[in-house]
Amino acid sequence: MTKYGPYDPTLDYAPGPAPTRKGGGVETPSWKPLHMSRRNFLRGVVCSGVVIGGSAYLFSTTTPARSDTRAVERLVRLTVNGRTHSIEVPPNETLAHTIRYRLGLTGTKIGCNQGECGACTVLAGDTTIYSCSTLTHRVREVDITTVEGIAGPDGALHPVQQAFIDEIAPQCGFCTPGQVVTAVALLKKNPKPTIEEARLAMSGNLCRCGAYDHYLRGIMKAAERV
């Protein structure tokens, strides 16, 4: 951004880039000369209409690199919610993708696909994992539980689910499956958490609606009922 000023009343500030001294005196630019760093130089070049390949702009692109074509599908046996599935999965496929697209269990959500938000949280045994950041082939030997496997076989809600309903914890509901799974895992390991323990245990699950307080209330209520 061009720097004008400090204000000099002897200058004529007509619209335009180059102030000229009134009365035809010597021109004294009142802003800093262009700082000709390498970055500014580059910018000058690209702004001057040089045609460049889209993906060459600063070596940047908005699309990821192509996948490894050697990634051939391999048969795995995957146990999800107590059911064992034999499915063909390429070695670079994430568990979130397998669950959602091959097994049709869409309760597990992909919020960020990069291990930030926790919407894809599932249980591997009793441990919570981000299924978006776990390769399916790595969990062949572990029992996976998704949000669909939290309620009882008769459809009876888990105390965490019921408490979340009672406390109106979900708002938009997109992060809720992850919140449910993490809370269930917490109460398995620590049936009577303090609110601070619950807060820490849940901290890997973001909620953009900001319903944290209501989820925590739900967990404390569920802990009384478990």
Partner: peptide
């Protein structure tokens, strides 16, 4: 995604601005 990564788009960069005040400057 692979097909999108394989597309070649030739683009010409045009002047851009991220600071409103800069755009309001005379030049």
């Amino acid at each position: 995604a692979d097909a999108v990564a394989a597309v070649r788009v030739d683009m010409e960069l045009l002047p851009f601005v991220t600071n409103p005040l800069e755009s309001l400057q005379p030049d």
